[in-house]
Nucleic acid binder design. Structure first.
Length: 890
RNA sequence: GGGCGCUUAGCUCAGUUGGUAGAGCAUCAGCCUUACAAGCUGAGGGUCGCAAGUUCGAGCCUUGCAGCGCCCACCA
């Protein structure tokens, strides 16, 4: 209805096509609909690889909220896609949805008030859409029901994203979609896993792994972060067998029962005498070896430290290369476990005292256990032969970095568990080499990749103890003892994928043998979400499913992503492409910056509502918001700045009005821009302006080839404003003529060419307004979109001769500017007549001005015979003297 | 603790291989000018973070320092 009203209102002299006012919402809704209807962004599978440009679109986490950061970075990718499309490329620009993993699980739990209980049977009558959330009663549902709730909710979230993307004008091929939890992605993920097993890149072992005690899952190195939190040094007195004592300074006294050794630096004179001897721990009276270890820092604490199983990664490494026993005291819930002192491995010289102490701690979470053990140590006088209490003084508070799961709330623990790992440590060199083969934009972002790879110290922990994710396609035979036989896993066949080992049955077994001796057990874990995300190029290309398609789409041309996930998404994707195909996953990686919002709070407060991307698009137009995103170079953070949105809106309005003016010149004489070819451009001023266009085309093309859309936009914008403010004013009078003449036709041909070029150069950033104007005078039919119309090349300007002087346009500008300045200073209207105009300049400048003098005179309203044009005998600057008429213009 | 990036007008940012500091916004003063008042014209405004060095010449190159941001780090 809006559309009909708009066209009904059109001007009488523009064939009913051109609205009088720019109404961005009308225009953007219209084209958003028509683009989809005409399928102009579809990928054509019949065209060869060389003509294809493949974008490895980031699948947004659908359970997250929509924010301006999305709009920012996805627009930047779209700008590149649109440029490549205009270059004639067959664009493969899919949309993926990341609905896999913890964020989705959490959101579903909160949204529905449910919790997954894997042991419950599936309830086919329970439907998420009918479920009412009850805050007081968390409902436990089966794994299958939980997954259905996830599917239901993510679909709603995906629809919201899709609406925003369409409104924003992303030129996505909506027929190419995937969800990271759908059958196809699960199948590719499982195929990938099986291929890695086949290639020997996978380990399945029980070993100490970083563990989040709240999520109750193993965590990979890439998902951890350090946080500064308060802690305290506790000075604890240890005795030495055969006499002597020393003090250890530790922040984790609660791990005392897990102490397996005490180490100091080999050169540390204070402790050398004890190496090889045995220390006795306080409270638990456990004899532990005193050893030399390079990693002990004599400067830190007292220079001597406990090795516990496990306090940190150094403990893990030291323990691995020692032959000492594992003393696990922290369970998967982060609480002190029950153990028996006096039995292997908890050897104690005084088991009764040890067990008594342990009983006090048992069942306490780490933090509480720490407080408790301080009390116990303070009361323990047995240490070091009764020379005082075990705790020296009071704990000394400090602030120190502690490892957390990035989404977790309590510090990570190292807990021995059985996990799948992908081997990466032995491939560091190869992975660095692969990273070097990719072109990074901006270049310095490669350094982050490099440092990450160099700093890797753990294999990729590939399994998670969660429910919503891709299961491992693996079962284990169950031994007579009832234990799974991990040494002889049963892998699913590739044809049977995707499988869920908890509901599917391995070949040769029946369901009633599940979890029974002589039967089988399904692997209960799911894969790290990055196991799927790392395959986005292969997911799109149907790797190992459709070799023809894979050849056409792999490797990708472009991976756009944010910098904080270089260590995860970019890294793991490089790992997979290399392990599977010895390839790089993409030729280019473009790293977008962040949106900073120092003022966002202020904005929303003063407006009284929350600023959502939809509101911004509605208020300022998609083109305006895209303009803001397009001004920011790759890798550069940008503030959310409404004043820039306004500038974008102003630019779109200007394009609208200037185009309307140009079209009016053709409408007046009943002709169209196509009737005036570039061969008609003969006037000096016109040739000079075309010369600027020539340079602009070449510059912006170079910029875009280097992914520097921001510089291209800047250059286009600069010349466009010159076109509006100066060229149009200079050429107006000439173009108004009703009579055909070479002078007029040269002007009209230049207007046609310039507008066409500007529209095309702006089109990647401002797809709506450019498409609208294109439809007024350039489109051959309704399906002829500017976005498939080709990028301007040298051929556009080659029929036009070079101007006699490359500065003809600039000099004309200088003169007209001077005339305007004089009028403005005199506070006169710009129509005011010029009675005398005296121009003095060097000879070549004079010659450059002479041919454009008629245009200057008409634009400046200079009276006939008022002009003196003089050449200096010697060097000198251009000087312009203006005398205004005494009386107002008629 | 290590690395990367940034620091240019009140604000947001350009500034190519070293050669007289740029734009937009904001501010101020004007202007209804046959596309546009969501407009147009013009003006003012900068010790290029600090210090040294190289050079005939440094916003740009070198070194040091400071501030900000990000990434990483071995939790005693």
């Amino acid at each position: 209805m809006l559309i009909r009203r708009m066209t009904g209102q059109s001007m009488s002299n523009t064939n009913g096509k051109i609205p009088k006012k720019y109404k961005h919402n009308d225009i953007e809704q219209k084209w958003s609909r028509l683009w989809e209807q005409n399928k102009i962004y579809r990928w054509d599978p019949s065209r060869p690889r060389e003509e294809t440009f493949v974008i490895d679109t980031p699948p947004p986490t659908v359970s997250g909220s929509l924010h301006l950061g999305h709009v920012f970075s996805y627009t930047q990718t779209d700008i590149i896609a649109r440029y490549q499309r205009m270059r004639g490329k067959n664009i493969f620009y899919p949309m993926g949805w990341d609905d896999n993993g913890l964020p989705t699980e959490r959101r579903v739990q909160n949204y529905f008030g449910i919790r997954c209980e894997p042991h419950l049977p599936y309830d086919p009558d329970w439907k998420p859409e009918n479920h009412k959330r009850d805050e007081r009663n968390i409902l436990e549902v089966s794994r299958q029901n939980f997954i259905e709730a996830c599917d239901y909710l993510t679909k709603i979230d995906e629809d919201a994203f899709e609406r925003l993307w369409r409104r924003l004008g992303l030129s996505i091929d909506w027929e190419q979609q995937y969800s990271t939890i759908d059958n196809h992605c699960r199948k590719i993920s499982q195929l990938s896993f099986l291929d890695l097993v086949k290639k020997g890149e996978v380990l399945h072992t029980e070993s100490p792994t970083m563990w989040d005690v709240d999520f109750k899952s193993a965590i990979a190195q890439a998902e951890i972060e350090d946080r500064e939190i308060p802690g305290a040094y506790h000075d604890i007195r240890f005795g030495v067998e055969g006499g002597g004592e020393f003090v250890i300074s530790t922040t984790r006294p609660e791990l005392l029962a897990a102490c397996i050794a005490v180490v100091a630096h080999p050169d540390d004179e204070r402790y050398r005498k004890y190496f090889g001897k045995t220390a006795i721990t306080p409270l638990f009276n456990s004899p532990v070896p005193i050893a030399a270890a390079e990693h002990a820092d004599p400067e830190k604490g007292t220079g001597i430290l406990m090795v516990c199983t496990f306090g940190d990664i150094m403990d893990v490494e030291w323990w691995k290369q020692s032959s000492l026993p594992l003393k696990q005291i922290i369970d998967r819930n982060g609480k002190i476990m029950a153990v028996t002192h006096g039995q292997e491995p908890f050897i104690s010289l005084n088991p009764d005292a040890a067990n008594a102490a342990h009983k006090e701690l048992q069942g306490l979470p780490v933090k509480k256990a720490r407080q408790k053990i301080v009390e116990l140590l303070k009361a323990d006088g047995s240490a070091a032969g009764g020379n005082g209490v075990a705790l020296v003084g009071d704990p000394k508070p400090i602030t120190h970095p502690v490892k957390f799961y990035e989404k977790g709330e309590r510090p990570l623990e190292f807990v021995p568990t059985r996990q799948w790992f992908v081997k990466i440590l032995e491939h560091k060199e190869a992975l660095l080499e692969q990273g070097r083969k990719v072109k990074w934009h901006p270049e310095h972002m490669f350094v982050r990749y490099q440092h990450w790879v160099e700093g890797l110290n753990q294999e990729w922990c590939y399994s998670r103890q969660r429910y919503f994710g891709v299961p491992f396609p693996v079962w284990y035979p169950v031994k007579d003892s009832g234990e799974p036989d991990y040494e002889n896993p049963i892998f699913a066949s590739p044809e049977s994928l995707p499988v869920d080992p908890l509901s599917d049955v391995p070949p040769g077994y029946t369901e009633d043998q599940r979890d029974k001796p002589g039967g089988f057990s399904g692997d209960p874990d799911v894969m790290d979400t990055w196991s799927t995300s790392s395959l986005t190029p292969q997911i799109m290309s149907y790797w190992s499913i459709d070799p023809e398609r894979h050849k056409k789409l792999f490797p990708s041309d472009l991976r756009p992503q944010a910098h904080e996930i270089i260590r995860t998404w970019a890294f793991y994707t490089i790992v997979k492409a290399w392990m599977h195909d010895q390839e790089i996953p993409w030729k280019h990686i473009a790293i977008s910056g962040w949106v900073l919002d120092p003022d966002r709070k202020k904005m929303s407060k003063s407006k009284g509502n929350v600023v959502t991307p939809e509101n911004l698009l509605e208020q300022y137009s998609s083109d305006a918001i895209r303009y803001w995103a397009g001004r920011a170079r790759l890798g550069t953070d940008t503030a959310c700045d409404p004043s820039v949105f306004k500038v974008g809106m102003r630019l779109a309005t200007k394009i609208f009005n200037a185009s309307r003016f140009v079209m009016m010149q053709f409408d007046r004489i009943g002709q169209s821009p196509a009737d005036f070819s570039a061969e008609l451009i003969t006037e000096e001023l016109d040739k000079a302006f075309v010369n600027r266009l020539r340079d602009l085309i070449s510059k912006t093309t170079k910029n875009f080839e280097a992914f520097d859309y921001a510089s291209a936009l800047q250059a286009t914008e600069d010349l466009f404003w010159q076109f509006c403010d100066h060229y149009l004013e200079l050429v107006k009078a000439r173009s108004y003529s009703e009579e055909a003449s070479p002078e007029r036709d040269s002007a009209l041909a230049t207007l046609a060419l310039a507008l066409k070029v500007f529209l095309k150069l702006f089109a990647p950033v401002l797809p709506y307004i450019t498409e609208e104007v294109w439809s007024w005078g350039f489109a051959k039919n309704q399906n002829d979109s500017i976005h498939r119309s080709g990028w301007p090349s040298e051929e556009y300007t080659s029929p036009v001769e070079k101007p006699r002087h490359s500065f003809s346009f600039d000099n004309a500008l200088e003169v007209i500017t001077k005339i305007r300045a004089v009028k403005t200073e005199a506070q006169k209207t710009l129509k005011w007549q010029v009675a005398k105009l005296k121009i003095r300049a060097e000879e070549p400048v004079v010659e450059a001005i002479r041919p454009v003098l008629p245009d200057i005179m008409r634009a400046g309203n200079v009276l006939p015979d008022a002009v003196t044009l003089e050449a200096y005998p010697a060097e000198g600057n251009l000087t312009v003297e203006v005398t205004l008429a005494d009386t107002p213009p008629a």
